[in-house]
Each structure stands twice: as structure tokens, then as C-alpha cells.
Write a protein that binds this DNA or RNA. Structure first.
Lengths: 251, 251
DNA sequence: GCAAAAGTGTTGTAATTACACCCATGG
DNA sequence: CCATGGGTGTAATTACAACACTTTTGC
């Protein structure tokens, strides 16, 4: 059985996912490292099966490459310039790993379609870095979080894709809802503020921020949190309903 | 020479354009009517050549199907549900027009690829209805403006695509810039207001609206306009720089 | 001079921003 | 009892909405 049979997929179209995680006031991006590639990383990406919707494909690809399941993914842009694919890189990779393909039972004909020009549909998500345990796929040798300000070398136009995803995320945070999958079940207002300040890269005043968020009328206050720290214990909050994280649209 | 040779295109991917035009406080959509299709309209759409970027493809397709050139197109969403393609309709159409294809020198094998599942990339634009003269393409029997509230029957999921384009347009108008290609070279504040009121479907107060728009600092005031009407002549405005309509991004 | 459409100024209210103070906790 | 981080109230500022009045023009 050929796992890379082009007949199963829509040709020349890929999906790339930008998974943002939040930890210690850092915004991080989840990047699996493909075994075959030397010192170059790629976004978790893949191809669309003939019998699945785009949204389903994005969720499946994300699960296959990172182990992350059941999260809200937002489609943000299609990348389709002629230069983006850099067929040279793909050709070099395929040529230098003939042995690997032999083991998988793939001929060079079988993987030739990977060298063609591709357009890629970008999805992004925000996840709670503590709620998610990345799993390393067969394809990959690692799957780690990287600070968005210190990303490793990315293949193709993936660095641009990350930046566009960040732009979209910021817009979303500004004009729609807060945190998505990012925050834990319960959280303090400071955690929300840290998130906003990190994503939007600007400071907020504590009291005004609280008012702004509570005015959205989507949080409810729980009991206080015991921290052990030498200060007043903060309240915990949670989302009023879970509808927000209902999942990707059916497209 | 086969104009529908699948080898020339990225398979199973199309582009659909929603062209909004503005006239007498009505928002209209430009819809070419394909000759073969009986009482059903489609958005001006087409396929992506192997050697062109997405943005270029969108502009080419728009020009081929409507004659409209050199405008700003905004990519807004990809449509990729399984149900959207309705292969039944496409099959019926192809079967019932075998004669046409014979004339064009196409066999049923040549057009079989059109029956497959497609994903479609949506672009929209706003144009000045008086600045644009739609041309009827070979494929079509007409190319007319339709009031967005009274659209003719649309094939596939094209009605949904129009609505999503309208949503995106409204968001854009709210949070980014004004009018795009829609307004003429010079225009009155009332024209801008009519545009906003029509697109956003809500009224504004004359003086407050003027302040809001001028505060954006993107318009400059010109001389007054002679209308011949029994009232004060309005000022004309124009965009401060033309950078706004620089054209589609290179993707 | 009057109606019609446009231009401009002024007020009142709502939303933001800034500042100030109080509370709980552990060392 | 004080340093730290959290909670809350209020004043100042700004933005926005509503209203009023003036100007130009053709009949």
C-alpha cells in the first residue's frame, strides 16, 4: 500500500498549518522536523484526500503530523505564487533519499508529482501549550515549539506563511473573540492579559484590560486560585459556554 | 488547439470572482451567463494555468470572462466542501451539449476532468459601474449586473460565495479603507456616503460621516462641482495617493 | 424668498484612558 | 510590616452621536 499515491489526493494543492502555542509570555510555533531534511524545518502540512472537505483535511493533517486533535482551525489565506514551491529543493530532497523511498516501496515515478508547482491553503490555530502533547509522526524526527522570534530555517515560503498567520491572528484577537483553544479550562485574568500582550505585542493597563474583557460577556468568574505567592490570590475565570470552540467549519 | 486542455491547468482547482458594482444606491453583482446553461448563472470563474500565480490567474479569468482589467482583487476564502461541486449538474450539462463540444473539437474524454470534485478560491472586487464596460465572452450569451437582493438562480454554491464575499467586503469597509476601484476619479462626499450606506445597509449622519471619512486622512478636497441643481454645489474629493489601487498581490 | 442639498459648529453622552487607592498574602 | 501582585473606584480625556444653524443655488 502506497501512502503517497497521488490518485488519492487533489494534485498540486497542499494545506499548511501554523499552530501557535503560548508559554511564559512567548508565542511559539509548533514545527515538526522531517527526517529527510537536513537543517531545514517545514510547517505541518499535507494533502487533501479526494473524499474529504478542506476543513476535515486540515484537521486530519494536523493530527497526523502533530497528534493534536479536535481544535479550532481557521483558514486564512491561499499561497500561490510561482516562486513559492522551489522545485529545486524538493528535487534535491527526493534524489538524495532514494534509499528511503525504496524501503517504503516507492519508485521515483511515484513521488515525481511532489516536484510540481503547489498552491497551499493556510490554516492557523491557537492552543494551550500545556494542554497539548505533540506526538512525533513516522515522517518526523522531532516536533517542537519554537519561539516565533527565533524560528529555525524554514523551507519554501513557510516563514512568510507564519507571518501572515500571525497577522490574521492579531486581527482576529482584535475584532472577534479571545483565546480559542489557547487557554486552559480555567485561567486568571493575568493569563489572558499576558496572552493578549504577547500576541499583539503591546501593553495593557491591568484594570482597563479586565473591564474590556469582562465587557465582552463571555467569561464567568469562579473561585479564587491559591498560588502560594506572597500576594492576593487571583480569581479564576472560564468561558461561559463551550460553543466557541465548536470546531472547524465544514468547508 | 484545445482551449480546455487539462494539462495546462492545476486540476480540481478553480477561481471564482465576485464583482460588486455600485449604481443608484444598489449593490450589484456582475454575472456572465454561460450559453450552454439553461436558466442558471455562474460567477465569472476559471482555472489556474501551470505557469501563472494565483493573483495573475484571477485577473486573467476576470478579463477573459468580463473584459474587466487592471483592478484590485481581494482573495477572501477557499471553498472546499464535498457537496459544493454537484457533479450531477456538470455531468448533465456536458451530456446535453455534446454537439457544442464536437464543434470545438473536444471529445467527452477531454472534458471529463470538469466533472471531478473542485475546490474554488474566491476573489472579490468593487468597481465603479460607470467606469467598467462588461464584454461578453465567447463562452457567454450575456454579462449583466444584477441587484444583490435579486440574484438570478446561481449554480453550485455560488450564492453562498457571493454572500461570503459581501461579508468580507463589509468587514474591509469597516476596518480598512474606503472604496477601492468603486468610485470614479473624483467624487462627492455624498457618493461616498451612498456607497457606505448601500454596502453596510445602514444610514449615517451627513456631518458625522464626513468627519469620519476625512479623519482617515486619505482624501483631498478639490474644487466644487457644478451640478445645475437648485442647491449648494458639493466639493469634489479624490484619493491622496494612488497606492491604494496598486493592484493584486503577487500570490 | 423659498426649497433643497451641502457645509459647519456645538452640545451631550458614551467609551477609553489614566491615575489612585485598597486588599490579601508570605516572608 | 512591608513588598508584591491583585482588585476596584473615579477622574480626565477622547471619541462619537445628535442637534442646530448657515451657505449656496435655481426657480
Amino acid at each position: 500500500m502506497n501512502i503517497l499515491n497521488k490518485e488519492d489526493y487533489i494534485e498540486q494543492v497542499s494545506i499548511d498549518c501554523v499552530i501557535f502555542g503560548f508559554y511564559e509570555r512567548q508565542l511559539r510555533v509548533l514545527l515538526p522536523k522531517i527526517k529527510f531534511l537536513k537543517n531545514i524545518w517545514t510547517l505541518p502540512g499535507g494533502f487533501i484526500l479526494q473524499n474529504e472537505s478542506l476543513g476535515h483535511a486540515a484537521l486530519r493533517i494536523l493530527a497526523e503530523r502533530t497528534g493534536i486533535r479536535d481544535i479550532y482551525l481557521e483558514q486564512f489565506q491561499v499561497f500561490g505564487s510561482l516562486e513559492r514551491s522551489s522545485p529545486g529543493l524538493m528535487r534535491d530532497v527526493l534524489n538524495s533519499h532514494k534509499g528511503v523511498f525504496d524501503e517504503l516501496g516507492l519508485t521515483s515515478e511515484d513521488v515525481k508529482w511532489l516536484q510540481r508547482r503547489f498552491i497551499s491553503i493556510g490554516y492557523y490555530a491557537l492552543v494551550d501549550i500545556h494542554k497539548v502533547v505533540p506526538e512525533i509522526s513516522e515522517l518526523d524526527e522531532s516536533c517542537e515549539w519554537y519561539d516565533i522570534k527565533e524560528l529555525p530555517p524554514l523551507a519554501f515560503d513557510h516563514a512568510e506563511i507564519v507571518m501572515k498567520a500571525l497577522d490574521s491572528l492579531r486581527l482576529m484577537l482584535n475584532h472577534k473573540l479571545i483565546g480559542f483553544n489557547l487557554l486552559p479550562e480555567t485561567f486568571t485574568m493575568k493569563e489572558v492579559q499576558d496572552l493578549y500582550e504577547t500576541v499583539l505585542d503591546k501593553p495593557f493597563r491591568r484594570n482597563n484590560f479586565q473591564k474590556m474583557i469582562l465587557d465582552l460577556d463571555i467569561l464567568e468568574r469562579m473561585e479564587k486560585k491559591f498560588t502560594g505567592a506572597a500576594n492576593k490570590a487571583p480569581y479564576l475565570y472560564r468561558f461561559k459556554n463551550k460553543a466557541i470552540e465548536a470546531g472547524v467549519s465544514i468547508n
